[in-house]
């Protein structure tokens, strides 16, 4: 569904690339977490999928198309196949729940009767039955995020991108949101979620792709937020947590080498 081949994205020639030769494939119907510290390239990844930016080199395939070959007037069609959810919900404050979800259908020209049928159905999926008439400020954070998810999936996109969807929510509410995303995933939508909420990742046990400084440093199925295995470039905290002597040693070695390389790299630049 999403395939990155040696994708590099450079925003500023003088700085290190935001994404550095990333190759990654996310299959149809998969649920993948994108984890990593701020600035590790998670958002850049999502922006490239949406064709908000162009890759500096390498190719990005979304739903079988090379996005570089999509002309600018066809970009809306690409985006109709992708739902997006943000940390800050981005609801329209002067529209009620129903109107917020319906807005996504109106702007792509869906008929009024289709909207009347589809919106309540989607609101039911996200657990907001009977709250159609509420205004966004009358809802809790979790409910607002559910509205945002409903809006993202109301046009039945094949892909749902979630950028820190639980970032503003407490742990219990977050789990509720994860339940909704999981349900959407069960219905066949590919879900890619960028997060640094370790509890959620550990709870869900889905595929985890870890980015660091624009590189994929880990890609594991049914994984935890922190790796149990030593990996090149692993941080000291993770290594300590693993608590195994021999791996700690080799991991430490690798980390030192990595640090030295980075230092040298920075010195060069």
């Amino acid at each position: 569904m999403i395939r990155f081949e040696n994708v590099t994205k450079v925003y500023d020639q003088k700085a290190r690339p935001a994404l550095d030769s990333v190759s990654l494939e996310i299959d149809r119907g998969e649920f993948a977490f994108l984890v990593g510290a701020s600035g590790s390239g998670k958002s850049t990844f999502l922006r490239l999928v949406l064709k908000e930016d162009r890759a500096t080199s390498g190719t990005v395939h979304v739903a079988g198309q090379n996005v570089a070959n999509i002309s600018s007037w066809r970009v809306p069609r690409l985006r109709r196949g992708i739902g997006v959810v943000f940390q800050d919900f981005r609801l329209l404050p002067q529209k009620n729940v129903f109107a917020n979800v319906a807005f996504a259908m109106q702007v792509i020209g869906k008929s009024r009767s289709v909207i009347r049928d589809t919106v309540p159905e989607v609101l039911k999926t996200v657990g907001l039955e009977g709250k159609e008439k509420r205004m966004p400020h009358e809802l809790s954070g979790g409910e607002q995020q559910r509205v945002a998810i409903a809006r993202a999936v109301v046009n039945r996109p094949g892909i749902l991108l979630a950028d820190e969807p639980t970032g503003n929510l407490d742990p219990t509410t977050s789990m509720g949101i994860m339940g909704v995303l999981d349900k959407i995933n069960q219905n066949g939508t590919t879900v890619v979620m960028a997060t640094h909420d370790d509890d959620i990742v550990n709870e869900m046990r889905k595929r985890v792709v870890e980015l660091k400084n624009g590189k994929v440093i880990r890609d594991e199925a049914r994984a935890l937020y922190t790796s149990m295995m030593p990996v090149v470039g692993q941080s000291r905290r993770l290594k300590d947590a693993s608590g195994r002597d021999e791996t700690a040693d080799s991991g430490g070695q690798a980390a030192r080498e990595q640090a030295a390389r980075e230092q040298a790299g920075e010195g060069r630049l």
Binding site: G81, R90, L92, A104, I108, N155
Partner: peptide, 17 residues
């Protein structure tokens, strides 16, 4: 800008925006 941002995300055409 909120509305247009959302319109863009859900794939509204340039004309509609």
């Amino acid at each position: 800008r909120r509305e247009t941002g959302i319109m863009r995300l859900v794939g509204a055409s340039k004309t509609v925006i």
